[in-house]
């Protein structure tokens, strides 16, 4: 019975995995459909910082400085000569270095990308280390009081409803 269940369940998990992979491939690879001009403007302005705000993107901000960049991006998109990256580069040149919202991956900015990975590795390593310690040192000394508590509890287990 048990073995039969095992085989059956193994097969059904395999089927599930295949279906999931298939669906992900179908959905993930297909075309996302045409972007409107406005969609392109939104995509680009999400990567540009509003020069006069605190950490807001041009997409989010309603400040006049953001408005100015937004209409420049709109002009560039309407002209449809430059690619998205080229438009971002152009705006960056025209409006100065601060307008890029995504930190670069050069210089000191490398840290902002690298440190989260370092943190994850450290956290996982610390957890793995703790697991080893927990499994080798099983518990500590049991005090008499603790032992009595457990014994009492085990004795009283019968009057559970």
């Amino acid at each position: 019975m048990n073995a039969a269940f095992n085989v059956k369940s193994r097969w059904s998990w395999l089927v599930m995995l295949l279906i999931a992979t298939g669906l992900l491939l179908v959905g993930g690879m297909r075309d996302t459909g045409p972007l409107t001009q406005q969609d392109r403007i939104d995509l680009i302005t999400k990567h540009l910082a509003c020069p006069t705000c605190q950490g807001e993107s041009v997409y989010v901000s309603r400040a006049p400085s953001a408005e100015a960049i937004r209409s420049e991006v709109a002009r560039q998109v309407a002209a449809s000569v430059r690619t998205n990256d080229e438009i971002i580069g152009y705006i960056e040149q025209r409006f100065g270095g601060q307008v890029l919202l995504v930190p670069r991956s050069t210089g000191l900015e490398v840290l902002v990308w690298a440190l989260p990975v370092v943190a994850l590795v450290c956290a996982v390593a610390a957890l793995a280390f703790s697991f080893r310690r927990w499994r080798t040192v099983s518990g500590g000394e049991i005090s008499q009081e603790d032992a009595r508590l457990v014994a009492d509890a085990l004795n009283n287990q019968d009057d559970r409803p």
Binding site: K46, H47, A49, G55, E56, S57, V60, G97, Q98, V99, L100, L101, V102, P103, E109, V112
Partner: peptide
Amino acid sequence: RTIVVGEPF
């Protein structure tokens, strides 16, 4: 120098 870290990050 000033940089901005925003939504895409």
